[in-house]
Each structure stands twice: as C-alpha cells, then as structure tokens.
Amino acid sequence: MTTIHEVLESWSHNMHIAEGFLPPVHAVAWTVAAAPFVLHGARSVTLAVRADPDAKLLLGASGAFCFVLSALKIPSVTGSCSHPTGAGLGAILFRPPVMAALGTVTLLFQALLLAHGGLTTLGANVFSMAVVGPWVGYGGYRLVRRLTARLPETTALGFAVFAGAALASLSTYSVTSLQLALAFPDAGSGVLGAFAKFGAIFSITQIPLAVIEGLVTVVIVRLLSTVARDELLRLAVLRSAAGGSAAPAGGRAV
C-alpha cells in the first residue's frame, strides 16, 4: 500500500513535472521562455568544441557527471531518500550558460531513460532546473565568494558552495511551484493561493533537502580541491596562487 512517505517521496525525488501535466499553452510558453538560454548554452558548447576538439570529450564527461549526480540518493526528511538537483554544483563547476545545455541534455535523458519528467514538459523543467536553478545558485555562490574574500580560501569556498547549492535547489522548487500555480490557480485565492498549496507540499521535503544538498556539495568541492586541484583551477573555481579571482572563463566549461 502506498504510504504518505512514498507520496512525499514521489514529489521530492521526482520534482520534474510529469508528461502531460501542464496544459499545452503553458508547456509551449515555458519552452519559449527556456529556449534563449538553451540556445546560448548550446552555442557556448559548440564554440568550445570548435576551438578545442578535445573539449568535446570533457564536455561529454561533464554531461554524464551531471546525470549521475542527479541519480545519487540523499537522505530525505520523510525517512526515505531523494535525489539532488545538481544544479548548484554544475553551475559552480561549468558556469550557468553551459549548465543550460548540459542540464537540458540531462533532463531529456531522464525523461526517456527514467520517465522522470516529460517531453512536452521538458521546456518547463529546463526553465526551473537548467536555467533558474543554476543562475540563482551561481549568483549566490559569487555573492558569498565576494563577501568572504578576506576569509581563508577553504572556508570562503565552503560558505559559497553551500549557499550556491542550497539556493539552486530552493529556487528550482520555487519555480516549479510557480509553474504549477500558474497552470492551476486556486478556485478561491488564484495563483497566490495555488503557489502556497504547491509550495507547502514541496517545503516539507525540499527545505531540508536543500540544506543536505548544500552540505553534500561542500564535501564534494572540498575533496575536489585536494584531489583535482588542477581541474578546479582550470574551471576557475579555485583562486590561483597568484591571487587571481574566480572569474568565469568566458562561459567555457573546460
């Protein structure tokens, strides 16, 4: 018998809007909204590959890493497990424009290989998970990085990564709630009431999950700063010994 845990779990570990759940007009509108970001990301990827054919292999590996990251199981507040969005870590490592492209690929694969999310709802899911999540997460990361510039590198990086990952996760779920609220406004209180309803269901699981995802991401980046220092320097996540800032490498992933 399905328990309340399983119901909450289905929302927490499959936050992708299911196939056919959105009215066609909304599905098209969100696809149009996500399209410029995805096209920009696809252009970044294409330019990176044309400039350096070896980048293709590393970008392929990055895409596969994003997919595997979203398949990892993290402990959920309901006692079962959930999956991280990976939007924050992806944005910190590869930058939001590239994440828009890699995230779209990941979501397409999830729809066709795992039945998580749909094809007609791909645009809506891309907008929340591959556009808003990475941009908000990356914004939070950069802001905290700037605010903690005087702290030691490891501490500053830890705070910034936590903020980036947790904010990316929370913003993803907030946008999904908004998408559902716009599609199905409440009979009495309209979009605002519907947003409160969907948000209330998500918040039971998603706020603790965002914190856990933030902590897991801090552990990942701390380990990477030891065992894969060269990669993080190349991706401009770590400041170079010469004191250079973590400036994005022109939106390039590798």
């Binding site: 289905s10 929302w11 499959n14 559902l180 269901i201």
Partner: peptide
C-alpha cells in the same frame, strides 16, 4: 517506471480538490 510519475500526477491532482484562503 510509471509509478513515480503517476504518484506525482495524483499528488498534484489532490491539491486541486481543496481551495485555500
């Protein structure tokens, strides 16, 4: 493969049964 998205659909549909505010 179908049960997780179906649960999402059902949970989402249940919220439409009630009105708030």
């Amino acid at each position: 493969a179908a049960w997780v998205p179906l649960l999402f659909v059902l949970t989402g549909a249940v919220t439409m049964l009630v009105s708030v505010g």
